[in-house]
Amino acid sequence: MSIQHFRVALIPFFAAFCLPVFAHPETLVKVKDAEDQLGARVGYIELDLNSGKILESFRPEERFPMMSTFKVLLCGAVLSRVDAGQEQLGRRIHYSQNDLVEYSPVTEKHLTDGMTVRELCSAAITMSDNTAANLLLTTIGGPKELTAFLHNMGDHVTRLDRWEPELNEAIPNDERDTTMPAAMATTLRKLLTGELLTLASRQQLIDWMEADKVAGPLLRSALPAGWFIADKSGAGERGSRGIIAALGPDGKPSRIVVIYTTGSQATMDERNRQIAEIGASLIKHW
C-alpha cells in the first residue's frame, strides 16, 4: 500500500482519535458579512469528516447552483462504474471539434489522439474542462443518470439537468442544476469515506481534487503551510461562485467545507476574496 493510499485508508482512524471539535460562531459572522459585502445569498456548511456531524452552517438547506462543483460527483459516478466493471479508466475516447464547448483548455489539445477516461476526469476536476465533463456525462448516460446515481446514494436534493455550459445559467428560483450545502457536503463525505467506492477509487477521487489547479484564489489562499486540501470550485452566471473541499491540518483532511453564493453584482475577484476570507476565519478558529 502506498503512503497516499495509507493516508486515505486511515482518515477515519486518525479522526477518531482527534480531540473533540467545537464550532466557532466567528466564522458564521464572516459568512454573514460576506453576504453584506456581496449583496447576495451565501450558503455555508462545515462537517466533521469522521462523524458527519454538522459543526457550523448557514442557509444549509437553500438551493444554490452547483456550477462546476458537480464534476466531482460526476467522476465519482464514473469511478463507481469502474468498480462495477462497467468502465475502464484506460479506455480512450475520441471526439471532434464539434464536441468542444466553451472553456476546454485540455480537451482542445487532444482532438487528434483523444483522451482516456482517467485523463478526462483529471481534466474535468483539476482544470474544470467543460468538454471533458460533457464527454464523461455521455459515458454514464447524461445528466439524468448522474441525478439517479445521487438518488441511489441517498441524495434526493442534488440534481443535474443540463450539460456544460448551460448548467451554469443560475436563474433565480430555478431548481435545475442545483444542490443544497448540506446535501453536497453529505454526498461528498460519502464519496470520500464511505463504502460506495473502493479504496482505490476513493484515493483516485481525492487525488484529482488535491491536484486542483484553478481554485488557488479561494480556500487555498488562506491555508497555512502543512495543511491538506482537496477541492473543486465552480463559477456561473449572475454572480455565482462555489467551492467544495476536504481539508485539515497535519497533512490530512478532517472536515468537509461547502460554500456557495449566487445573485451578486460583485466582480469575480471580490467573490473570490470573500470566500478566501471565510476560509481564513475557519482556519483561525479551527
Rank of each mutant, 00 (worst) to 15 (best):
M1S: 01
I3Q: 11
Q4D: 08
Q4A: 10
Q4G: 08
H5T: 10
F6N: 10
V8K: 15
V8T: 15
A9K: 12
L10E: 04
P12D: 07
F14R: 01
F14V: 11
A15M: 15
A15I: 14
A15R: 02
A15C: 15
A15L: 14
A16G: 15
L19Q: 15
P20F: 03
V21I: 07
H24L: 10
E26I: 14
T27F: 04
L28A: 10
L28M: 12
V29A: 14
K30N: 07
V31D: 01
A34G: 07
E35Q: 08
D36N: 13
D36P: 05
Q37G: 10
Q37L: 14
Q37F: 14
L38G: 07
L38P: 07
A40C: 08
R41L: 09
G43M: 00
G43D: 00
I45S: 06
E46K: 10
L47M: 12
D48A: 08
D48N: 07
L49H: 05
L49N: 05
N50R: 12
N50V: 11
S51D: 15
S51I: 04
G52H: 06
I54G: 04
L55Q: 08
E56C: 08
F58S: 10
R59A: 06
P60Y: 09
E62Q: 07
P65K: 04
P65R: 02
M67A: 15
S68A: 00
F70N: 05
V72Q: 02
G76Y: 05
G76N: 01
A77Q: 14
S80E: 11
V82R: 07
A84Y: 10
G85E: 11
G85S: 10
Q86W: 10
E87S: 06
E87P: 02
Q88W: 12
Q88K: 12
G90E: 15
G90S: 13
R91P: 01
R92L: 12
H94R: 13
H94C: 08
H94F: 14
Y95I: 11
Q97N: 10
Q97I: 13
N98C: 07
N98R: 15
D99F: 07
V101C: 10
V101E: 09
E102Q: 15
Y103P: 07
S104T: 06
P105N: 05
P105K: 06
V106C: 09
V106M: 12
T107V: 08
T107D: 01
E108H: 11
K109M: 15
L111D: 07
L111V: 14
T112Y: 15
G114R: 03
G114Y: 05
T116V: 06
R118D: 12
R118E: 15
L120Q: 02
L120E: 01
A123G: 06
A123C: 08
A123M: 03
A123P: 00
A124M: 07
A124V: 08
A124C: 08
I125A: 04
T126P: 02
M127F: 11
M127E: 13
S128V: 00
S128R: 00
S128Y: 00
N130M: 01
A133G: 12
N134D: 05
L135M: 10
L136E: 01
L137H: 03
T138D: 12
T138A: 15
G141Y: 05
G141L: 04
E145A: 14
L146K: 00
A148E: 14
F149R: 07
F149C: 07
L150W: 06
L150Q: 05
G154Q: 09
H156E: 12
H156F: 10
H156R: 13
H156Y: 14
V157D: 15
L160I: 13
L160K: 02
L160T: 10
L160Q: 07
D161I: 04
D161C: 06
R162Q: 08
W163H: 09
L167I: 13
L167Y: 02
L167S: 06
N168G: 11
N168D: 07
N168Q: 07
E169Y: 11
A170N: 09
I171C: 14
I171E: 15
I171W: 14
I171G: 14
P172M: 12
E175A: 14
T178L: 02
T179I: 01
T179Y: 00
A183V: 13
A183H: 12
T186G: 14
T186Q: 14
T187R: 01
T187D: 12
L188H: 04
R189F: 12
R189D: 08
K190W: 09
L192C: 08
L192W: 08
T193I: 14
G194V: 07
E195A: 06
L196R: 15
L197E: 04
L197K: 06
T198E: 11
L199N: 15
L199F: 11
R202L: 05
Q203Y: 09
Q204M: 15
Q204I: 10
L205E: 02
L205H: 01
L205F: 05
L205V: 06
I206E: 09
I206F: 13
D207T: 13
D207E: 14
E210V: 14
A211Q: 14
L219Q: 04
S221N: 12
S221R: 13
S221Q: 13
P224K: 07
G226A: 09
G226P: 07
G226S: 11
G226I: 03
F228A: 09
D231V: 04
K232L: 00
S233W: 02
G236F: 02
G236L: 01
G236E: 02
G236H: 02
R238N: 15
R238G: 12
R241C: 04
R241I: 03
R241G: 05
G242L: 00
A245Q: 01
P249K: 13
D250I: 09
D250F: 12
K252C: 12
P253T: 08
S254L: 10
R255E: 03
R255S: 03
R255K: 12
R255P: 00
I256N: 01
V257H: 01
V257F: 04
I259P: 00
I259M: 08
Y260I: 08
T262V: 08
G263M: 07
S264Q: 06
Q265A: 14
Q265Y: 12
T267G: 13
M268H: 09
M268W: 09
R271S: 09
N272I: 03
Q274E: 13
I275K: 00
A276G: 10
S281E: 14
S281N: 12
L282W: 02
L282Q: 06
I283A: 08
I283E: 03
